[in-house]
Design a protein around this nucleic acid. Structure first.
Length: 447
DNA sequence: TGAAATGTTGGGGCG
DNA sequence: ACGCCCCAACATTTC
């Protein structure tokens, strides 16, 4: 008897129920499949981060006498092949609930001569479990959150790496080298040990102030756990257990991730399609104007400091502060009149934490097209938001060095400065575009 | 997890 | 003392 533990987005050895299940059935072969269908849409930063995570996992496995077996190709071919090579009685996975993963796993189960055993998922509560009394899915976060909290989740699973009998004699491709990264890009530390370290640092140093300080992009006040959650180097259940009853605000952020995973599970098409179909009639700019605006937004050259700082942080770190994600998203949709799908795609290409469910639904929330979405007429004023959440412009000056010489008051409105700064003029006038957006919205509602 | 427009209230200056 | 005006501060409505 032997088994294959096929890793996907659960690249850890602690609190891993699928690993415990696999370890009960003789020697375990740890497998990761380089699947081009997943590698293609990921930008270089996320790919590099994945490879680093794989290297860390491989090292941990080697400490336990094993190794991570890397293969490339179609999972339905490769997983079946490896299962035959090691004469596995079963292939163990943690369940995936995304549209691609669901279809892929169905194909793999079909192709296997042995059982594909799903144990656990990357969520505290598996998507689909939390539903209304009548069995229908929640479309409103607050109601979901109440039910999700009542539902509860198991305590973290015990660590099983030490007790597993890892195989290390299976042929493997090398883990690919990092792809070429943009110069100056700094990625967060990858791997399970880094996840545990950085979670502990957050709990010790920043959790107490989280609810008051999390909206400040100029402070290091957030958990920064999103890349680790994306690749499963830590399980949210571990985090929730450490929270105890301490911080409802942070628990809610974990719950947003679970909510959006559930929404995607029940409405797989919502990754692309507008939740509110009438909103597809919103008019957008097109042609050269659209191209120019999109490029200015992507490069962080819109002339609005908080927007540009956020977009440049995305390019510099593969990450953006959540408050600023909302500001730049609102700006794309309501000031530049570009479609949310365009912005969502750019985020997915550049974010190390790029998670389909959270990203697409977060964008739909901002664009007013989604479940439990902000009403369309909630339009962020980039100057007001900047003043409120980056009062002395420290975040802006970190990513937009052209503005370093400006006093705090002018850093959010450099166009009012007497001194000339080498910084783009505003590509649009917020006051004007806000009215255009509201008029567009009226025209959609009337039609 | 908005912001602007509009409405209301109340203090102070003034005749 | 009183009414009137102005306007800041706050509340409500609207998009």
């Amino acid at each position: 008897m032997s088994s294959v533990l096929w890793f996907r987005r659960d690249l850890r050895l602690r609190d891993n129920p699928a690993l415990l299940t696999a370890a009960q059935n003789g020697p375990v072969t740890a497998l990761f499949v380089l699947d081009d269908a997943l590698r293609r849409p990921a930008g270089a930063p996320r790919l590099a981060y994945l490879y680093r995570t794989l290297r860390a996992l491989d090292e941990e496995l080697r400490d336990h006498g094993g190794a991570l077996v890397i293969r490339s190709g179609k999972p339905e071919t490769v997983v079946a092949q490896v299962a035959r090579e090691v004469d596995a009685a079963a292939v163990h996975i943690s369940a995936d609930f995304g549209p691609y993963g669901t279809a892929r796993d169905a194909r793999v189960a079909q192709a296997l001569d042995v059982e594909l055993v799903r144990t656990g998922s990357p969520y505290a509560v598996a998507p689909g479990r939390v539903v209304k009394a009548d069995g229908s899915p929640f479309q409103v976060f607050t109601a979901f959150y109440r039910r999700w909290s009542e539902h509860g989740w198991p305590a973290p699973a015990r660590s099983g790496a030490a007790s597993a009998d890892w195989r290390s004699d299976v042929a493997s491709r090398p883990i690919p080298h990092d792809p070429a990264l943009p110069p100056g890009l700094t990625l967060p530390d990858a791997g399970e040990a880094a996840a545990v370290r950085s979670w502990q640092a957050f709990v010790d140093q920043r959790l107490a102030g989280y609810s008051d300080q999390r909206d400040r992009p100029d402070w290091d006040a957030t958990s920064r756990m999103s890349p680790h959650l994306h690749y499963g180097t830590i399980h949210p259940r571990t985090m929730l257990a450490d929270l105890g009853r301490r911080d409802d605000t942070f628990r809610k952020e974990v719950a947003w991730r679970e909510f959006y995973a559930a929404v995607l599970h029940f409405w797989p098409e919502s990754a692309r399609a507008y939740f509110k179909p009438e909103m597809t009639r919103m008019p957008y700019v097109s042609g050269r104007l659209a191209d120019t605006r999109l490029e200015a937004w992507q490069q962080g050259r819109t002339g609005y400091p908080i927007v540009d700082a956020g977009m440049r942080q995305l390019l510099a770190e593969g990450w953006m502060h959540n408050r600023v994600r909302m500001i730049v998203a609102s700006f794309l949709v309501k000031d530049l009149h570009l479609e949310w799908t365009v912005g969502a795609r750019h985020f997915m290409r550049h974010l190390v934490d790029g998670d389909l469910a959270s990203n697409q639904h977060g964008w739909q929330w901002t664009a007013g097209t989604g479940t439990d979405a902000a009403p369309y007429f909630r339009i962020f004023n980039p100057v007001t938001q900047g003043r409120k959440f980056d009062p002395d412009g420290r975040y802006i000056k970190r990513f937009v060095p052209e503005l370093v010489g400006l006093p705090d008051e002018l850093v959010h409105e450099p166009w009012k400065a007497d001194q000339k700064v080498d910084y783009p003029d505003r590509i649009v006038d917020h006051d004007v575009e806000r009215k255009v957006a509201l008029a567009n919205y009226q025209s959609v509602r009337a039609s």
